[in-house]
Design a binder for these strands. Structure first.
Ligand SMILES: [Zn+2]
Ligand SMILES: [Zn+2]
Ligand SMILES: [Zn+2]
Ligand SMILES: [Zn+2]
Lengths: 142, 142
DNA sequence: TATAAGCTTAGAGCTGACTCTAAGGTCAAC
DNA sequence: GTTGACCTTAGAGTCAGCTCTAAGCTTATA
């Protein structure tokens, strides 16, 4: 049985965050001391670590909530439900990756074009490019 | 001279967003009608388009604010200041890219491991992996 | 027994970039 | 001369995921 600060130490989540997750029904403390202190048993701890792992991977709290309800009643859920959540997350990640790669590309091109020196910015090609509407929407080999 | 809705149509920003940007001193309306309507002259329009371009590239409003103050007084600023902002943004982008690539990798591995079928999730290897603390922190060839 | 560290709660505050609302004034067209 | 589209403002609300505060108990240590 761990107290909240011990669970915090074990998971790397802050006590604040653990309480916040409890509000959202992600983490549970099966027991309370007479004074109201939270106590986490092995099952609670495993659940908290599941949450931590899922969060580290990048799942949203809403995703984690769904994954948890599958986890606690596996026979009522299918592998497909799990892959749906995972695939949807992967799609999101891929979309953000595209955006970021495009930004990366544009920024690299801008940086290459500018001397970067201590000269006055009157001739700065980055400023010029922005003025000219330089949206390099290029998506080639990253 | 454009009215706000015309500038909105021209830039693709909403009138709300234009007013919001004005609050943050990114976009300006040099003139107002007697009734208080905003009117944008050519210089205002060019500034708005600069803002739009910079935003599309991914610069934060704070970055854009700095880029604008360079733009309006180029002789008081150097190319280096411009590259500093740009490089800093690129560093941010690269960091987010790393995180997302790591997430992508993990999600792909998880998806490969799961049958994705209509079977009960009792044997689901994604759930198992999350339970086992499956943090694939792998950063190899994307 | 006293001090400090740790726990409790409801609820407010933070970030960034919008997005919208309410209540009203203005303007062009028919 | 009225309908309806457009404009104004200050300020509130939205999103996700925390993060912190205040005020007051509890527990462990010295
Ligand atoms: Zn230069
Ligand atoms: Zn330059
Ligand atoms: Zn399966
Ligand atoms: Zn499965």
């Amino acid at each position: 049985m761990l107290k909240i600060s011990e669970l915090a130490a074990k998971t790397g989540l802050s006590a604040h965050t653990i309480r916040f997750y409890e509000k959202h029904d992600l983490i549970r403390a099966s027991e309370r001391s007479e004074a109201g202190y939270r106590y986490y048993n092995d099952s609670d701890i495993r659940r908290a670590e599941f949450v931590k792992t899922a969060r580290n991977i990048g799942f949203s709290l809403e995703d984690i909530s769904q994954l948890l309800s599958i986890r606690v009643d596996k026979t009522s859920h299918s592998c497909q439900e799990v892959t749906d959540i995972t695939q949807h997350k992967l799609d999101e990640v891929n979309e953000k990756l595209s955006e970021l790669e495009s930004m990366q590309n544009t920024l690299q091109i801008l940086l290459k074009s500018c001397c970067g020196g201590p000269e006055k910015a009157t001739h700065c090609s980055i400023i010029e490019a922005l003025d000219a509407g330089a949206v390099v929407k290029n998506r080639s080999a990253a």
